[in-house]
Write a protein that binds this DNA or RNA. Structure first.
Length: 168
DNA sequence: GCCGGAACAG
DNA sequence: CTGTTCCGGC
């Protein structure tokens, strides 16, 4: 597959509940596809609104996702069930009335997956907002360069969060 | 197509 | 935990 290490640092693939595992998540995969080819391909592309994306070829997307996860029987019916589980997590929601169209909640995406402990005051207060700004920039301009900058900032935040830089 | 419950896997 | 599989309902 295309370069997952380019877009996401390794720690982004490790859920907090399972330090050993390194399973790619569906929203990683979607952003990966949307981050390349100027945000447009025959399979998936950014939509009209901010964070909105359209699946142009649902079964092809499912096949690619199945290849990544080692699930040869993946299809859009099952992939879309996984997308629907994102609704309550506030990672995605459906753009109603538009076929195969969903929308990212990027601020929630950041807060859920990369939240800072409230007790830590080592970081500037607006690190999240800075990241969101970069990510929104990459969305509006469809520049993978901006996405790389965003993830570099992610890495920086992660480094600052390490025990070596703990408060007190 | 889209929804969400239920059982299940790793 | 994040999905995967299956499915009845709209």
């Amino acid at each position: 597959g295309p370069s997952r290490s380019v877009l996401f640092p390794d720690w982004a693939y490790k859920p907090a509940w399972s330090p050993g595992s390194r399973q790619v998540q569906l929203w990683h995969f979607l952003l990966e596809l949307l981050g390349g080819s100027g945000g447009q391909s025959d399979t998936i592309g950014w939509g009209g609104e901010w964070g909105e994306f359209v699946i142009h070829n649902p079964e092809r997307l499912a096949r690619l996702w199945g290849e990544r996860k080692g699930k040869p029987h993946m299809n859009y019916d099952k992939l879309s069930r996984a997308l629907r589980y994102y609704y309550n997590k506030r990672i995605l929601h459906k753009t109603k009335g538009k076929r195969f169209t969903y929308k990212f909640n990027f601020s929630k995406l950041v807060l859920v997956n990369f939240h800072l402990p409230p007790s830590c005051h080592c970081l500037p207060p607006s690190c999240h907002q800075v990241f969101i700004f970069f990510l929104s920039l990459s969305l509006s301009l469809s520049l993978s360069l901006s996405l790389s900058l965003s993830l570099s900032l992610f890495s920086l935040i992660h480094t600052l969060r390490s025990p070596d830089n703990a408060c007190e």
